[in-house]
Design a protein around this nucleic acid. Structure first.
Lengths: 203, 203
DNA sequence: GCACTACTGGAGCAGTCGCTCAGGTTTTTC
DNA sequence: GAAAAACCTGAGCGACTGCTCCAGTAGTGC
């Protein structure tokens, strides 16, 4: 009765499974979701095509696994933002990363949303993400109507950073977020929004 | 020297070209962008596969044409919103339609954004849409920082209406938009935003 | 040693893919 | 009428697709 994580065979399998998911993400980033196929991913990962079939019975399963993993990653990033001293500033950084090192993840995340309309398993993932964003914003934006609007803006900003020719920088995104959250603050106020006054007044 | 629009041959060709684009949109809505192929679109349109090749030398050309047509359609819708007595309310209706009769167009529009990162021709289309939204919001939101935020929220709301299991209704979207635009107005303010200073926005 | 399980990977099948091509029909021009 | 232009199509080629099958190998438990 060896535990799965101690079984050398299973550990090797898990490692390879992860390798395949990462390869899938790279393919999505480079050539888009339509380019994902067993053979392409296999070559990207440096494994024979049949290995892909072994870990993911169908291509669809591989896609779901990759997109779910991507969502996990984003949720972890969001949790990190919430724990930061200035959550909104950290979120702005996370958003801006979409134009650089994390391009693959944004592409995958939005392919996820698009696929969610047709795929029940991914519908749940999309809902999970939306719920997390709402929870993240709750302490900062008490009004639920405004909060939904800010959440929508976060989605839009992710998207814009991904496809725009000249994406905004972290400071710009931060200014936008504070403006939408603050409400009465008209222009990009230089007030560092680091005080936690709003967390106590309306909890 | 007959004008192209009077030539019976060309008119028939244009009609068929339009038919193919509409078929492409239907395929995108039903099975997603990866499902688009010459043969599938041909069957959807009820024409032989070679007819697709005749009008669109490559599948990529067909995709670009369909997505551009979709963008044209959205830009026309936005122009109509700007001309309405209450632009924001009309925009809310346009957004909510994404969960119903115009599902195909939202799917296509976001596939456009995703493809834009890789395809120059679609990059220009995406920029055109973003510019139009900005122009639409300009009279309503003077502050450019806030305006960019509201524009991002509009994108996010479109997306949410598309994939959400229970999408918001027009009144809800309208409340969100007025809250974000109004700034200090916390809940859905009843202020009718019916000034007609935005007649200059063209295209 | 043995049986058992997890993983490996080459071969191959039926189907679809994008795309070409040669020849056909309809419409316009002269 | 003839010639030209635009539109139309069935056949088919090589490449790729998802997926199956099955004879292997490596690691585990006894």
């Amino acid at each position: 009765m060896t535990a799965p994580e101690q079984d050398g065979r299973r550990r090797k399998g898990e490692r390879r499974r992860k390798l395949l998911i990462e390869a899938t993400m790279r393919v999505i980033e480079r050539d888009g979701l339509p380019a994902v196929s067993q053979r392409v991913v296999a070559q990207e990962a440096g494994v024979p095509p049949s290995a892909v079939t072994y870990y993911f019975p169908a291509v669809d399963d591989m896609l779901v696994a990759a997109l779910t993993a991507c969502n996990d990653d984003y949720l972890a990033g969001l949790a990190e933002c919430a724990a930061a001293p200035d959550p909104l500033a950290r979120l702005a950084e996370l958003i801006v990363e979409s134009s650089g090192p994390r391009r693959a993840y944004v592409a995958a995340e939005y392919e996820l949303f698009l696929l969610a309309a047709r795929h029940p398993a991914l519908q749940a993932e999309a809902t999970r993400w939306v719920g997390a964003v709402d929870a993240f914003l709750a302490p900062l934006v008490p009004d639920p109507v405004r909060r939904t609007g800010v959440a929508a803006a976060v989605e839009g900003l992710f998207l814009r950073c991904f496809y725009a020719a000249d994406p905004p920088d972290a400071a710009g995104v931060h200014a936008i977020l504070t403006t939408l959250v603050g409400g009465q603050a008209s222009a990009a106020a230089e007030t560092s929004q680091s005080r936690s006054a709003d967390s106590g007044s309306s909890a």
